[in-house]
C-alpha cells in the first residue's frame, strides 16, 4: 500500500501488476469444436447423384393414350444395344435427323421406345435423353411425344 502511494505520488514509471481474472471469452477451443463438426459432416455427406430425367406417366391407366402403331415412329432397342428405327438400323445421333421431317409435318407424332427385354437399360435412357433434347435441337414448339409402353401394355393392346 505504501508502494502504491509512492508510485502514484513520485514516479509514474513504476507499474504495479495486479493479477486480475481476464475478461476475455476463451475462444481458443472454438475452432477445435468447429473442425470436429466439419469432419463429422464431411464424412457423413455424400454428394449424391440427385439429378436425372423426369418422365411423366399417363394420368389414368384405364384410358391409355391410343397410339396407332402405323402413325408412330418405333424405336426398337436390340439386346446388343443397337437401334432399329422403323425397321432401319440407326445410330443414336441419327435419330433426330430422321425424325425432323416427320415432326415438322406433325408435331404430335408419337415416338415409341420399345426396348427388348434383354436390352441394356442404359440404352433406353440414352434414347430418351436424345428425344428430350429434340425440342431444342430441332427448334420444335413442343416436346416430342415419347411413349414407353411396358411389356404388359404391348401384349394387351397391340396383339
Amino acid at each position: 500500500m505504501t508502494l502504491l502511494a509512492t508510485a502514484a505520488g513520485e514516479d509514474s514509471r513504476v507499474k504495479i501488476r495486479v493479477n486480475r481474472p481476464s475478461d476475455e471469452i476463451p475462444t481458443s477451443s472454438m475452432a477445435d469444436i468447429a473442425f470436429l463438426l466439419i469432419v463429422y459432416f464431411m464424412v457423413t455427406t455424400t454428394f449424391a447423384a440427385t439429378r436425372g430425367l423426369d418422365f411423366n406417366l399417363p394420368k389414368d391407366d384405364d384410358t391409355p393414350p391410343i397410339v396407332e402403331k402405323e402413325d408412330a415412329v418405333l424405336i426398337d432397342i436390340q439386346p446388343d444395344g443397337s437401334l432399329i428405327v422403323d425397321r432401319k438400323l440407326m445410330a443414336l445421333n441419327e435419330i433426330l435427323e430422321y425424325l425432323e421431317p416427320k415432326l415438322k409435318n406433325n408435331p404430335k407424332k408419337p415416338v415409341i421406345i420399345k426396348p427388348q427385354p434383354e436390352a441394356p437399360y442404359g440404352m433406353m435412357v440414352a434414347v430418351f435423353d436424345v428425344l428430350r433434347q429434340g425440342k431444342d435441337t430441332l427448334k420444335l414448339e413442343k416436346d416430342i411425344n415419347v411413349s414407353l409402353p411396358t411389356q404388359r401394355e404391348i401384349e394387351s393392346f397391340w396383339f
Binding site: 440427385t50 436425372g52 430425367l53 406417366l57 434383354e118 441394356p120 442404359g122 433406353m124
Partner: peptide, 27 residues
C-alpha cells in the same frame, strides 16, 4: 446402366399400375 431392360420394365409397369404420377430416371 447394364441391367436387362425387363427388370426395369417390370418396375415401371408396377408404378404405372399404382398410378404413380412422375418418375425420375437417375443419371
Amino acid at each position: 446402366d447394364q441391367v436387362a431392360y425387363r427388370n426395369v420394365d417390370k418396375v415401371i409397369d408396377s408404378l404405372k399400375q399404382a398410378k404413380v404420377e412422375t418418375i425420375y430416371l437417375l443419371s
